[in-house]
């Protein structure tokens, strides 16, 4: 019992940040992301004995979270393609040039189709390899690599068109 508790707390401390960020990029809403993380860890606690390999903990948790997110859509079938800019980040805190750029890029990432943004987030944020991502998303590796290529390509193109767009925010 004690060891399970210790394991759980270690898991929470080590991975809650990554998991929250991943959830945030899945659903684009802070509150929903937090709820998803809560549900995920609660399920993880119940199934903790089935986690044999601690190295696989992150992908295990992400798999639970993705399932949890899918369930959210089963429960209430609202239109998921609708993305509301207001939810992405609060514009009030945008002060420095760096943050401005972050904010701008966040919107671009949020606007990517989910099938492109998800592998990108797993790769950059999660540090997973192409093979890992392919297993987690149940795709073949070539598809994952193509999607990663397209995701970056789109962001790069958007970035190159930046000055025009940027002006809107600066001016």
């Amino acid at each position: 019992m004690m060891t399970k508790q210790v394991r759980y707390e270690a898991l929470v401390k080590a991975l809650h940040g990554d998991l929250y960020r991943y959830a945030y990029w899945l659903c684009h809403e802070k509150q929903v992301a937090e709820d998803l993380v809560q549900e995920t860890f609660l399920r993880a606690w119940r199934a903790l004995d089935s986690l044999k390999d601690e190295k696989a903990a992150k992908s295990w948790l992400i798999t639970i979270l993705r399932r949890e997110n899918a369930r959210r859509f089963e429960r209430k079938r609202f239109d998921m393609s609708e993305y509301e800019e207001a939810n992405i980040t609060d514009t009030k805190s945008v002060t420095t040039e760096q943050e401005l750029e972050n904010h701008w890029l966040r919107e671009k990432i949020a606007q990517l189709p989910p099938e492109y943004s998800e592998p990108l987030i797993l790769q950059v944020l999660g540090g997973f390899s192409g093979e890992d991502i392919a297993t987690m998303l149940d795709l073949n590796k070539n598809t994952v690599m193509t999607r990663l290529f397209r995701a970056r390509n789109q962001l790069k193109e958007a970035l190159e068109a930046e000055p025009v767009k940027r002006g809107i925010y600066n001016g």
Partner: peptide
């Protein structure tokens, strides 16, 4: 840049 952009702040006290 993408990495920085993805690092959204985690709510305080979440753990």
């Amino acid at each position: 840049k993408i990495m920085r952009a993805l690092q959204v702040p985690v709510p305080e006290g979440l753990s």
